[in-house]
Design a binder for these strands. Structure first.
Lengths: 143, 143
DNA sequence: TTTGTTATTGCAAATCTTTGCAATAAGGAG
DNA sequence: CTCCTTATTGCAAAGATTTGCAATAACAAA
């Protein structure tokens, strides 16, 4: 999945934010890299194109784009954070703490639980931020 | 809930680990503080008793005690990690990203989902490490 | 008790991430 | 096109966490 820069730009400006070269470069990098990226891989990717970017800007922009729901955050096994393009249909992840591999699980699978939690505790879940940590099939066997 | 140091000590030695003053101080600190603690609060607590402790040791020991299932890790809203005494009956958390407050949810509530995931993906979930992030009832209203 | 093995610690340096502040530049208004 | 406001960036320093390595000290065995 790619991103529609014109419409994203319009949306940001509409909300009073600015569309800077850095933001575009970072979003391009996330798309180009594909899948789940880390602040460091994004930084390197953008750097390979131009030196006109600072690490702090990468971190700040990744947070910003997540707030704007253009990206989605996901927890990685070591307590680090990964990012991916926010998809229309939310989905979640099984993350292997051993090999770091991830498996996507459909939103439908956890929706019943989510609704039960929301109803019972009046707690609104961040539905784009759910990672279940554990051991994948391969890593279980190696044990 | 407190900890039974004699039996824990025996268990660790049994497995070839050593029971050092630092480990005891750190475990005591977690118990004394109660609830969910962070590496920093543990460090300060131990420090207030004796200067004979290094920050790196606190981090390493917290990880170690988690591996030994004496403590359990939990994800905090800012990507940080919290710890608590591992209880007999596993439970999970709803963590408010706004106020940082936590609510415990019973294991029974998510067990059906967990079993479905394990069956369908052959993925073993870390059952002590599940945190759902979101907004608690109070913080929703403030919006 | 003494000794030997090696798990653990402390330290310092490396990583990773966040934050305050002054300088820069996006983009709406004139 | 120029000016003005202020959102963003870069920089540097602070904070948080991890890691390599030599020194220390548990604790099992003699």
């Amino acid at each position: 999945m790619s991103h529609d820069m014109p419409s994203i730009s319009a949306r940001l400006r509409q909300a009073g934010f600015r569309v800077t070269p850095q933001r575009q470069l970072i979003l391009d990098a996330v798309c180009k890299l594909g899948g789940h990226v880390t602040p460091e891989t994004v930084y390197k990717q953008v750097r390979s194109i131009t030196p006109a970017i600072n690490r702090a800007t990468v971190y700040r922009t990744l947070h910003f784009l997540t707030e704007q729901q253009i990206l989605a955050e996901m927890a990685l096994p070591n307590g680090r954070t990964g990012y991916e393009i926010a998809s229309e249909t939310p989905h979640h992840h099984l993350v292997c703490r051993q090999c770091g591999g991830t498996v996507e699980i459909a939103d439908g699978m956890i929706r019943p639980l989510a609704e039960e939690i929301e109803a019972q505790y009046n707690f609104t879940l961040d539905m784009h931020h759910i990672s279940f940590l554990g051991l994948c099939a391969e890593c279980q066997e190696e044990k």
